[in-house]
Design a protein around this nucleic acid. Sequence first.
RNA 1: GUCCCUGUAGCUCAGAGGAUAGAGCGGCUGCCUUCUAAGCAGCGGGUCGUUGGUUCGAAUCCAACCAGGGAUGCCA
Length: 552
Amino acid sequence: MLKQRLIELLTQAASEAQKLGKLPSVTLPEVSVDHPQNPEHGDYASSFPLKLARATGVNPLTIAKDVVGLIVPVPEIDRIAVAPPGFINFTLEKDWLSRQVDSILLAGDAYGSIDLGQGSGVQIEFVSVNPTGPLHVGHGRGAILGSTLANVLTAAGYGVEKEYYINDTGSQIDAFYRSLYARYQQSLGIDAEMPSDGYFGNYMIDLAKEIVAQEGDRFLVLPGPEAVTQLGRLGLDKIVTQIKSDLELLGVGFDVWFSEQSLYDNGQYQEAMSRLRQQGYLAEKEGATWFISTALGEDKDNVVVRGDGSPTYFASDIAYHYNKFLERNFDRVINIWGADHQGHISRMKAVVGALGIAPEQLQVIVSQMVTLRRGDELIRISKRSGDIITLRELVDEVGADVCRFFFLARSADSQMDFDLELAKRESQDNPVYYVQYAHARIASILRLAQERGIDYADGGVSLLATELELTLIRKMLLLPEIVEIVAHTLEPHHLSYYAQDLATVFHSFYKQCRVVSRDEALTKARLRLVAAAKLVLAKTLHLMGMTAPESM
RNA sequence: GUCCCUGUAGCUCAGAGGAUAGAGCGGCUGCCUUCUAAGCAGCGGGUCGUUGGUUCGAAUCCAACCAGGGAUGCCA
């Protein structure tokens, strides 16, 4: 990557300056290079001399001049300038820039991929919604964040494993089972009462009816507890199947569907607990078993085994992370949780530390709340009451691409309002169409070229020299940097802004530069340019999990 | 009370300590005989919540405060 190359050049020149005695031999600060907002300052700039000035006491302008004098010439760079109070500005060589069109076309689908991860493994767990009902809109946000992040980390050279943790045991599942049994009995005409802690959504009635239609009344003859369990498992399977298909509609898939129950069946729950007990992190008080997180600097302790002997979800999560780090040996684990799990983060990190794992190996991304509205009408998102807009309904209304782009258009940290009315009403002006339209336009140009039998394989890209053309190339060259930023910050929303920027630059070029014209050589050169732009747009859209349409 | 997130243009939001803080939407002007007008070009719009601090340099880091949201269960 070009940026990395500039950093190397600067670092090299600075240590050379130290060898020559032009700079004091202090430890060099981290060399950073970024894009100045003012184009007069070139394509890349470094404030490195300003930082070095602090450590050395040398005038930053002097440092900049000395370092620039020692930078070895490279074909990428046309000009290196020193600017007060101590910036080093790089301007790219135009011929080199235009040649990048060929490089991009040569790289093909691999363009934008980098080797940041060097094959190291990352597990990313997301969605993991209790299978007690359909996914709602807020879950979609986590799903899209996770799947996009997985795409980007893969492109950044990591070995990524996507996982959905199925909470198929515990008190909420128990409530789900009992609710389903009540609805099942009711749909067979029996006057059964719903449990007070039950799931009252209409989908439970539909689910019961579906089971009655398929299985008849055979569960009625079983003893109560047996019927609850068998019926419950059947219902749970159906919900999980539904969740899978809802996610598929959004283009979200997983490598592993991990069962919570399996942690109890294979003894890993016991192993995790006894390990914590050996380390002295478990204690009995008030009739329950507690994780002594206060010993690790937490505000309070937490119950892991209730007074009635049943484990809390925290206990399961301890076993689950024991499994991730010590059974499956992931070096790095990313969890994406909803804002309601925010308080769970620090104690979970404490657990990881107590298990002998560096807490930094666990990264938790919290996606803030999504509020759904239709115009002025607020829609409550509550699975218990059943008054929800499901993720499936959302996708049906606005489409998967719009849905994905919308969620990727804001950082996970900020709460968002999803106005369904607005999303539909503005669909013509939606940025997703703006970006996809750029891709479709290019496809249209390439179709025309094909109809006219123009073979642009030998097009000479050195003819690409106008500012509009070079601006488009410069923008295309940013994709690897965006991939790096997203992989580093775990903030996929940067992609959507990049996609819009790239589309803007293309639309502007398109308006002012005729591609297929009477000038054969220029036509071929520009066809190569737009073919490259199409590739970069498609790659960006695909990283976001979106389609790149050939026509609109 | 404690912890987390947020506060930037009329609205929705970007902005990895750097140079003159940006985009989309909305408003106003222009632009289709030529590859898709779902487009382009232009105009207007700001005490970056407040006050201090760190720094050569702060929207960005620190502290306090103000405002909105969330978490503080032997629910998940």
